[in-house]
Each structure stands twice: as C-alpha cells, then as structure tokens.
Design a binder for these strands. Structure first.
Lengths: 173, 173
DNA sequence: ACCTGAACACCGTTCAAGT
DNA sequence: ACCTGAACACCGTTCAAGT
C-alpha cells in the first residue's frame, strides 16, 4: 500500500543526516531512490509535506513515565533536545515551521494534566516556558559553528532547566 | 563611499517586510533597486553576507539602562522579542544561523557583569537561560499560523519570563 | 500503482566587458 | 565605482504519457 511512501520518508531522513537540510533536495533524494524527482510527488504532494512528515516521524510521541512533576518536565525538555540533536539540522527542521500537529498537542495536554494533578499551579505556563527554553537553547546550540564538548553543553542546558524548575517550585508554596 | 552598500541593506529590509524571508531573492532585490542581480555582488560577497548584515543592523546594540537586575533581564528579553516581531520572519532571520558577532557578545558581557555586580550568582547561566527562552518563545510565536491577539501573547511571554526570574531570585537567598 | 520525459518559471553566483 | 549580459549549475513543481 503506502509502503513506498515510508521508504521515501526513511531515505529523506538518511539523506538529511548525510547532507544537511539545505542540500536536501527533491532531485537528490529521488536520485538516491533511483527515480526522477517528479516521481516523489506521487507520495508527497510537496517538499513541505515531506518535511512535515519527517518532523512527525522524528518527534513521535512517547508514554508519560511515572515520576515527580519536576522529573516529568526535565524528561520532556531533554527528550525534545535529544531528538533535535540526533539529526543534522534537527533543531532547525523541528523548531521551524509547523503548527504542532494533533499528536504533539495531545502529548502537551497530557503533560499539563499530569503537572496540574501534581499540584503545579499554571501548569500550562510551566510547560510552555520549559519547551520554549529547550527549543531556543537547542536551536542556538546546533546553529553555532564553534562547538564546545557535549558534556559542557549538557551541563549548561541542565543548569538553565534547573533555574526554571526552581521558579516553578517557588510558585507552589 | 560605501553608501550604496547601505541603500542595498535598507532595501533588503524593506523587501523582507513586504515579501517575507523565503521570497527575498537577490534577483528581486536587484530589480527593486533598478539593477541586475550580479550588481549586488559588488556590495555584498554573498546572499548570506547580506542576511548577516541585516541581522546586525536590526539587533543593533543599545545602552544598558540603570535598573534593578530583574528589570535589566526583562528588558533584554523583551527587547530581543520586540526586534524579532518588528519584521516579517524576524525570528527566523535573527535566531537562525549566525555566530553572535562581536557587538552582541559585548552586550551579553555587559549584561552579565551588571547582574554579577547586583549579586546574581551564576549570572551567565541566568542570561543564557532568559535569552534562550526569548528566542524559543518568539520563533514559535511567529511561526504559528493561527495567531491569537498580541495582548495575550505578551502576557504569556511575561508569565514565562516571571517564572525564570523567580528561579533566579530563589538562587540568591 | 508507480514512474519517465519534458517543460515552466525560477534560483545564487561568476566573470568578462562596459561607463 | 558601479553596472550589464551572458552563462553555469542548479531548484520545486506540473503534466501528459508510459508500464
């Protein structure tokens, strides 16, 4: 059925890691599949639709583990950063242009509900703030040419995250 | 001297607001100036160089006002957001691809110094966190198709910012 | 169901040459 | 100092036609 569609999607992700977002071309992707560019339009109506599908596939939507509210929040933020860092130009691709898609929205809602039940006031603000931070941090991290070692970047990310979580905790008194 | 260079820069920013980043083409820009695209390469060595110059011009680098540390931080964050929102695709243009440039680095340093003198521990972490938040929030805000009114977006931004500042304050005890 | 061939309307960039 | 003309090596997308 739509199984060639999935092959195209996987080839696109492989090619992204190989050549980067700017060089990810319908024509180049087609040639990797042994096919002409025009053939791709049978599977995706436009390049943008293909990029959207890539984002949806990468982000996925995991289960919410059993954990304290702060661990939940840390997990969501690091999870987003991990998936971005796992692919070349992942931050630009994912943070980029897209209304969030129904799966992402649902995952957000579940997280907000969990925090609310754990007694976090204004849980939506907390989640939005942490996710905006993770997005902003990682976009800049991956855009920067001069890259310091992963260990230090992880620590910087965790330090900022800790600051926000302390702010949420302060609002809970 | 390099005054045609400045005309090109200003025309590019005008054109950005008119047509958006994706339609901002060397050929279209040239035609607005009554000139062929190849003529632009006398003033900027590449399109990327022109985009970098646009970012530098938009971001500028203001004075640091006399204010409490938290007001300083709020001002820096809202200032960044304002300049992004002031131009079509401003967030994507500015947050995008660029090592920060020496002026931006200097402004960062001054802010960190001011916070340190005001008794904020780990002032660098505080500044980085707030700026990553402002970046992430605004990129998402401007990318979203379905736009709610400005007033509500401002409030959401301020709420998140307040959370981070509360976290910094909590670290000061 | 999937693909080709050819075309359309574009890109950024280079370079000799003009004034 | 600034610009033209022409070219090079590309783009995304459409559409009739093939198997």
């Amino acid at each position: 059925m739509g199984q060639r569609r999935t092959e195209v999607l996987h080839a696109a992700i492989e090619l992204l890691d190989e050549v980067g977002l700017d060089a990810l071309t319908m024509r180049l992707l087609a040639s990797r599949l042994g096919v002409r560019a025009s053939a791709l339009y049978r599977h995706y109506p436009s390049k943008q639709a293909l990029l959207d599908a890539m984002v949806a596939h990468l982000v996925g939507t995991g289960e919410l583990p059993e954990a304290e509210w702060d661990e939940l929040l840390r997990g969501a933020a690091s999870g987003l950063r991990s998936v971005m860092l796992a692919h070349r130009d992942g931050a630009r691709l994912i943070a980029g242009f897209h209304d969030p898609g129904p799966d992402a929205v649902a995952a957000f809602e579940r997280l907000i509900t969990a925090l609310t039940e754990a007694g976090v006031p204004a849980a939506a603000v907390a989640v939005d703030t942490v996710m905006a931070y993770a997005n902003g941090f990682t976009v800049e991290e991956q855009a920067r040419k001069t890259r310091w070692p992963r260990e230090g970047r992880d620590r910087a990310f965790d330090d900022g995250l800790a600051l926000i979580i302390a702010g949420i905790r302060a609002s809970m008194v």
